[in-house]
């Protein structure tokens, strides 16, 4: 009786979670972490030459986002709930708010810096507009 009682799914999930899911998630997360770390160490060891800044930064950001999605799926089991998928909906709304918040802040503050930094304004405008003194 008590054994049957215990053999049930975790609240909020339709299916029992599996070992496979956690082990897959763990291995992929580890490999992404080590790849990002290894690339940055290679970059530092070659005196910021290989891989270059403009290639390396997008790569480590993509690796972070990929690991984020892997852990959401394999650890937090996002997307396995029955319809209607409220968790996914709230998650989507959160992503929207976060995107507006982060990109909006950076955009506004960079613009302020461009327009208001003392001394720097003249030089940046001269440079951007291609004015030759």
């Amino acid at each position: 009786m008590s054994r049957d009682y215990h053999m049930k799914t975790i609240p909020g999930n339709t299916k029992p979670v599996s070992y496979r899911s956690y082990i897959t998630g763990f291995i992929i997360s580890l490999s992404f972490t080590f790849s990002a770390y290894g690339l940055v160490v290679a970059h530092l060891n070659t005196g910021h030459r290989w891989p270059g800044d403009h290639v390396l930064l997008p790569i480590i950001i993509v690796l972070a986002l990929a690991q984020f999605i892997v852990q959401l799926v394999y650890f937090l089991h996002l997307g396995v709930e029955p319809r209607p998928r409220w968790k996914l909906l709230v998650f989507g709304f959160m992503t929207l708010v976060v995107a507006i918040l982060v990109f909006g802040s950076l955009w506004i503050m960079n613009n302020l810096k461009y327009n208001m930094s003392p001394g720097g304004t003249d030089t940046s405008i001269i440079k951007d507009e291609g004015i030759h003194k």
Partner: peptide, 14 residues
Amino acid sequence: SFTIGMAILAAQRG
């Protein structure tokens, strides 16, 4: 994060 997942799996089996 992985080991707490193992705790959940053990809890599922009681």
